[in-house]
Design a protein around this nucleic acid. Structure first.
Lengths: 339, 339
DNA sequence: CTTGGCACTCGGCGGTTCAGAGTGCCAGCC
DNA sequence: GGCTGGCACTCTGAACCGCCGAGTGCCAAG
């Protein structure tokens, strides 16, 4: 038995199933793909493929559908990324052009991704702990409250209101700001926590408590649970792709619980050759998301990978196109952010 | 015919229909509510109510369901807001406690609202044009770019990167910041545009272009389409409440298209007595949202109404409870923000 | 190894039947 | 005049049935 043909059959089954959304039979297969053998031969191949666990029958006397394992070998060994059309490339550029700030970039990015893939798109904000300080700003809010604004090299801006316990004179704020930036600017946020104890020593004794309060606010931004943030788009695509109600609800819930999404993304590591990462169906740990695949890619700011973006869709999805779109968008947004 | 009883019948029909999600018949009605008349009598009342357009039959020989008009008189004349339970009040306070900033407040608020009402919740960010300047911050980003950060009295923070065309010395930035805040602080953003032409005159001639650039960035934040922003939660509740697929898709799309949501909210004005506003089914103009009602309320920062929050749900919803929840959350968030 | 033939399986579709819930109407009653 | 019980009628939804067709597995022959 030709091993190459069997893979061709698997490919054909997946392509047809993705397109038609219906179990595909041996006869339809030879008609729509020029396999140059008879249906009976295909049936033998199918039996073998089923034996190996790549395809399955919903019930006796129905066609075959791919299993998660089947999709996996399709992604790994059979399919190639399908290059984006000229129009699609232009669409990405148009959609993400002229952003006014980071929020805007990510918002447009996630929309572009949703539109391109017709699926639910997710974009993670650049990780704070992997960013460095561009500027720390301190703004008196009147009374004894200060607003601490942290601006990172990835363009992300975090703010915290802090209660100092006493009113801070304007000139002290000014000096504090100047000194703080002198010390912190350019420094990775992750290393700031280490110096939290020693940093105040550089300041006048009477200002040290104040410095500690401000630094704690900065550190707090990076603290667990605070630093991660995602934007979503394309939820409406769910209604189109889902077949039944039951499959829709758990996905909506996962989307709502952004923690789940974040865990999902952080579990993934890009394939070095394609630059994207794919989790198919039960490959991820979330029971309710069986039937859902994730295609994601890291994106970079200033050369270093900062966060991930990607899409969620039914395991029955067009992987080559989706993977290509995710990769293209990730590359483009990296360029924009690093600029 | 007793007019009071007819309203009681309408109330009973609505309550049962909301609870059971099925057309309700005359017999079931007398059994579940002590109306103290026979089913036949109720049938006469029902015929009259149908005549007036408050209820309708999906088909002959089925029970009755309320029409949008029926819900309307229910909300206006029959039902009272159902006070929240002690547990619910506590839930609101717990969910929205200890916010770190405005984003956090609104995020928690929208989640609380979704959880309380089991529906899709929407919270609009405080309107910029109704806010005033608390502080304008200018941060050099290196090269010829500046980051302009606008902080409003409602706690909202907007940022824009501007290209000055030349590198601006640190001390000019410092002076600019100081002078700008002197002039702008406390001033309503809406009036800032008016002074856009005259403001630069207060500065040194060589700095005026720079001032204009910065001011344009501020003004740009308030410009149409930029200033409106919403947060959403509870999308997963849709899957629970919707009966069929067709009713779900348009709502998801409207949610995606935040413009639609914003228009929807801005069309509404609070009833002075209850403090909330209700749009039922076709009462709003969006064809695809027939079948969807909106319950919303304005919320205030510092005494003035800044924006709206509310929920979207099926016309078949528990209005008394929903309205009470929306009102309670609006009041609570107003208190938090104004603090 | 491939192929045509063949018997078998099973889901989905259309048609039919049936019970139940609900209605409208009417005549009688208070 | 409004309320009520009785009655005939309507319509949906569930259950049932039988058939068609797509699809399979197996086998014997090429």
């Amino acid at each position: 038995m030709s091993d190459a043909r069997r893979l061709a059959v698997l490919r054909a089954i997946i392509e047809d199933y993705v397109a038609m959304r219906e179990p595909v039979g041996s006869k339809a297969l030879v008609e729509r793909h020029n396999l140059e053998v008879s249906p009976a031969t295909i049936r033998n191949d199918m039996a073998a493929l089923e034996e190996e666990g790549f395809i399955t029958q919903p019930h006796t006397s129905a066609g075959r559908i791919p299993t998660d394992k089947g999709y996996r070998v399709f992604v790994d060994r059979i399919a190639n990324l399908k290059p984006l059309s000229q129009a699609e490339r232009r669409a990405i550029q148009t959609l993400i052009s002229d952003p006014v700030d980071l929020d805007d970039v990510l918002d447009r990015t996630v929309r572009a991704l949703a539109q391109l893939t017709h699926q639910v798109a997710v974009v993670q904000y650049p990780s704070l702990s992997r960013s460095s300080v561009r500027h720390i700003e301190i703004v008196p809010l009147g009374g004894s409250r200060l607003l601490v604004v942290l601006i990172t090299n990835s363009g992300r801006i975090e703010q915290r209101t802090v209660e100092t316990g006493f009113s801070v004179p304007e000139d002290v704020v000014g000096e504090l700001r100047a000194r703080l930036n002198e010390v912190a600017a350019g420094r990775p946020l992750a290393t700031l926590a280490d110096r939290l104890d020693t940093l105040p020593d550089d300041f006048r004794p009477e200002d040290r408590d104040l410095v500690r309060t401000v630094l704690r606010a900065v550190e707090d931004s990076v603290a667990a649970g605070r630093e991660d943030k995602v934007v979503l788009a394309g939820t409406a695509n769910l209604a189109r792709s889902a077949i039944d109600f039951a499959s829709l609800s758990p996905v909506l819930e996962a989307i709502e619980e952004q923690v789940v999404l974040l865990r999902l993304l952080s579990e993934m590591a890009d394939d070095p050759s394609s630059g994207v990462s794919v989790r198919i169906g039960h490959e991820h740990e979330h029971e309710s998301l069986t039937g859902t695949s994730v295609v994601s890619s890291g994106y970079a700011a200033g050369g270093e990978v900062m966060a991930r973006l990607g899409v969620l869709g039914p395991t029955r999805m067009d992987y080559p196109t989706t993977m290509a779109a995710v990769r293209a968008v990730a590359r483009y947004v990296s360029r924009i952010i690093s600029a």
